[in-house]
């Protein structure tokens, strides 16, 4: 869409968008360029002021996040379940190690006590059968009974 450009409207564009006509709204850009080309001296003061401001703003340095901020932003994101599992897996296994140690100590004490405890005899065949069904070695008790 081509619009008729007036001096007043062109000054508004310069004051808002700066000295570069390529920054003007697309619908008015061509008309603005045409008027600027036709009578540049009429807008010299506005263009100069706008250009100074453009240079000033264009010279502003970029703001870049520090590595620490970037890391914090990434860390603040939720993690996938698999990653949560691997994080858990990486934790020290002290509870499991403790349980295993307790079991080992219990077995050692139990075996030591069993060796010193008086051995009873199981003469009853029903008892023998029950013990055998429970997985105990009944040959010892059977031999003792003989």
């Amino acid at each position: 869409m081509t619009q008729t450009m007036t001096d007043a409207r062109l000054i508004e564009l310069i004051e808002a968008w700066g000295a570069d006509a390529n920054a003007y709204p697309e619908s008015e850009r061509d008309a603005a360029k045409a008027l600027l080309a036709e009578a540049p001296e009429r807008f010299a003061a506005e263009l100069k002021a706008a250009r100074d401001m453009d240079v000033l703003l264009g010279g502003m340095p970029e703001v870049m996040p520090s590595a620490a901020l970037t890391a914090a932003l990434i860390d603040s994101a939720p993690r996938a379940r698999a990653e949560r599992r691997s994080w858990f897996a990486a934790m020290p296994r002290w509870p499991a190690i403790g349980a295993l140690a307790s079991l080992a100590i219990g077995l050692a004490i139990g075996l030591g006590t069993a060796q010193t405890a008086p051995t009873g005899t199981t003469e009853d065949p029903v008892d023998t059968l029950v013990y055998a069904a429970l997985g105990f070695d009944t040959t010892y008790t059977q031999e003792a009974a003989q």
Binding site: P65, L69, T70, L73, I74, A77, R79, A80, E83
Partner: peptide, 14 residues
């Protein structure tokens, strides 16, 4: 929760 995608968004927009 894909870390590579998270990093890409952070690097692009932060």
């Amino acid at each position: 929760g894909e870390r590579q995608a998270v990093s890409a968004l952070v690097n692009r927009y932060s």
